[in-house]
């Protein structure tokens, strides 16, 4: 089983920080706009601090959990903190494969591979936190495996 690049934790912490910032802004907004409700500064700081700690812990735990593997017949992934999900995506079901990166990912030098199937619920499976080189290789491998195992149209 392969783990993600350790820098992915920074990405998740950054994403958590954004959520925490929005939460803080909402609390401050409530304090300012609704005159009847007076939110103490200590409470805001406490909530933000707690949320920040939770976000970091979540990111660290998610990184520990996240694993993937190219097995004989399928791409296999294990992930999740509160709900652990193990997914198998058979190569023959792969419709197309993307590599993607957002602004924070790019700054961190990371990239994601997104595997699309014709399914409904897990129609796109994302493997984040790969170096651009690893992402490219994974994409190539998956593409080759998908072509190799293609027997009939999937849908």
């Amino acid at each position: 089983m392969e783990s993600l690049h350790s820098r992915i934790r920074l990405l998740w912490i950054a994403q958590g920080a954004i959520v925490v910032a929005v939460l803080g802004a909402a609390l401050v907004g409530v304090d300012r706009v609704i005159s009847a409700i007076d939110v103490p500064v200590a409470a805001i700081a406490g909530v933000i601090g707690l949320a920040g700690v939770l976000a970091v812990a979540y990111a660290v735990r998610l990184y520990q959990r996240w694993q993937f593997e190219l097995q004989d017949d399928a791409l296999y992934l294990e992930r999740g903190v509160i709900t652990v999900v193990e997914t198998a995506v058979p190569f023959v079901r792969v419709q197309h494969v993307d590599t993607q990166f957002g602004p924070i990912e790019r700054a961190l030098g990371l990239s994601s591979v997104v595997v699309y199937t014709a399914g409904t619920r897990n129609a796109d499976v994302r493997v984040p936190g790969l170096t651009p080189d690893r992402a490219r290789r994974l994409q190539d491998t998956l593409r080759e495996l998908a072509i190799e195992s293609d027997t009939d149209d999937a849908v």
Binding site: T83, V84, V85, T87, R93
Partner: peptide, 14 residues
């Protein structure tokens, strides 16, 4: 016809 198979375990299920 199976596309993907997932096993889910929530914190309560675990």
């Amino acid at each position: 016809r199976v596309q993907t198979i997932s096993t889910r375990r929530s914190i309560f299920q675990r």
